[in-house]
Design a protein around this nucleic acid. Structure first.
Lengths: 192, 192
DNA sequence: CGTCTATTTGAATGTACTCAAAAGCGGTGG
DNA sequence: CCACCGCTTTTGAGTACATTCAAATAGACG
């Protein structure tokens, strides 16, 4: 199970799992493939399955009052993707999750995850930390939006996600940065 | 305990407490007063005490790379205030929490809260929901920052916090909206 | 190849900021 | 009680950052 190690490695960054626990976890997560431009979640639906990316790249986005699309998350292999808030609250999501490439995913439905918590309570700690980190990162995003100019946001995105230019179309990067693609083009070509 | 009802009412919005539980909770929270312009938290310190506002108004803010102050939260009576992330993770905070007026607070240290969880497990649910809501609201703030112009953000702030003009100085409202005070002045006086 | 979509470029515009100065307001002391 | 001090808010003029719209160019893929 070569690929699944990515998931286990991720767990092991924060908690220590026994071999038995690793086996159990591996049986609970189901591998799933989706093609480019397919949806994992659409606005109005409840996000019910925790989703870890083995391969590929996905985006999360919403539509504003004028119907404009705004990308809030760009996620690649080794990360979780989806609307945490809908997952936790059980309420309909305001977001879409869509693949930018063919993807391989590991998926566990919420109710199975809760059963797994009973058998491997350490996992609760892992997911609590995961949610805390998500909270911090959305907070940092809100803060940088008001305190850091677009060019600097672009540069630090490149640092935290070095290969993003090769994986993600320009217009998606621009949207994630909160700017228009034309302006990102100017930033990149020093025409600003 | 007239004032404490505000706290209990808050709990009762999401969970049902027995009279005994209410009494226990009331003994665990300590009333505390702070004067105008005092600090509840400074950057670099760990936020260790859950704090509920009975009376008064406080702000949370951080300093950006240029030393500019950015207000991220304006909290009045009936709300919790503080850096959730530091509270949960035990890591030093990047934020300040400062009073805008004389305040009456109800405070419980983190370790006492955890003891209280053992006696009143329902509270875990309440705080889980509280954190989820905080996550949603910071996410909405990040989203509105990139999709809603300043004037519309100002109008919806007035709707969600009607008496804010009388409680909070203009410059603080501007900072919370992510704009300069001069510009907020122009928005208010239709000079834009 | 041709088509479709993504990116670049130009010109005009809009939104928000900077700096500086003036006006308003609240508290304090004479 | 009012005059003054310090701080907040307003106003003006100039500027910077980012958008819009349109057209040209470049890339990807069948």
């Amino acid at each position: 199970m070569q690929n699944s190690n990515l998931l286990i490695d991720n767990f092991n960054n924060h908690i220590s799992l026994t071999l038995d626990e690793i086996d159990l976890i591996n049986t609970c997560f189901k591998k799933s493939k989706i093609k480019k431009n397919e949806f994992l979640l659409k606005e109005g639906a409840v996000f019910k399955r925790a989703t870890f990316i083995l391969n590929g790249c996905l985006i999360m986005y919403f539509h504003d009052d004028n119907g404009k699309k705004h990308i809030t998350q760009i996620a690649q292999s080794g990360n979780w993707v989806g609307d945490i808030s809908s997952f936790l609250s059980g309420k309909p999501s305001a977001f879409y999750v869509e693949s930018l490439e063919d993807c391989e995913l590991l998926i566990i439905p919420k109710e199975h995850l809760e059963e797994l918590y009973l058998k491997v309570p350490k996992l609760e700690r892992y997911f609590r930390i995961l949610i805390q980190n998500a909270y911090v990162s959305v907070q940092e995003k809100a803060n940088s939006q008001i305190s850091v100019p677009a060019k600097a946001r672009y540069i630090s995105l490149l640092e935290s996600f070095p290969n993003i230019e090769n994986r993600v179309p320009q217009y998606a990067i621009a949207s994630f940065l909160g700017i228009r693609p034309e302006y990102l083009s100017r930033i990149k070509n020093k025409k600003m």
